[in-house]
Design a protein around this nucleic acid. Structure first.
Length: 189
DNA sequence: CATGGGATTGACT
DNA sequence: GTCAATCCCATGC
């Protein structure tokens, strides 16, 4: 399951699908994953497309680690590294339904509405206090924890959003009808 | 060594 | 709907 490296060693698109509905925890805050995207070194939207560099070494490393990078110089984005070591692939966690530490999230975000706390990849890292310091850490051990859903979760598939290359690939997953997903880009279903 | 471009967000017109 | 903020890193001279 999600606490076994083998879970992450599989095909990255499958991992992205199976992470839907899982609970991710970082310190005292946690939420249910409602939106993910897969990235793989064989397609140009993936950072690992350029090959092994200082920036991408975590992506090519062992599965089950966190790949955290800074976007637009402002926001940290959280990924779970997938596929065997040597393949550069990861699942971007794009949105959560917050379930624990809501008041701490509100304090960190400077907002009150629960729907605004984790409804975007840059928002959830701020709410869970995930930074570049978490880059390369295992998601199987503290301060991280990942747990599978109690019951199967219905989801839909769409193209990825916010990118300019390989925009045709249907590698974005989200919980059907969720109100917790990021609101940018194409409609949910 | 200089430069350009983001897997985004929030404030403003 | 439009746009600035802000910085790391990959690329090219």
């Amino acid at each position: 399951m999600t606490n076994n490296p083998e879970f992450y060693a599989r095909d990255v698109v499958t991992v992205a699908r199976d992470l839907i509905g899982c609970t991710v925890t970082h310190g005292p805050t946690s939420g249910v994953i409602v939106e993910t995207e897969a990235y793989h070194d064989t397609e140009p939207a993936c950072h690992a497309f350029v090959g092994l560099t200082a920036r991408t070494r975590v992506l090519f490393g062992p599965p089950g680690r966190a790949y955290v990078y800074r976007s637009y110089g402002i926001h940290a984005l959280l990924n779970a590294v997938a596929e065997p070591e040597g393949t550069g692939a990861a699942v971007l966690i794009r949105a959560l339904e917050p379930i624990a530490g809501l008041d701490l999230m509100r304090e960190r975000r400077g907002l009150e509405r629960a729907e605004d706390l984790c409804s975007g990849p840059g928002k959830l890292t701020q709410a869970l206090a995930i930074t570049g310091a978490d880059d390369g850490l295992s998601v199987l051990a503290a301060p991280f924890r990942l747990e599978p859903p109690a019951d199967p979760v219905e989801f839909v598939v769409t193209p990825r959003i916010g990118i300019s290359k390989a925009i045709e690939l249907p590698w974005r997953y989200l919980v059907s009808g969720t109100r917790w997903a990021s609101v940018n880009g194409p409609r949910q279903a």
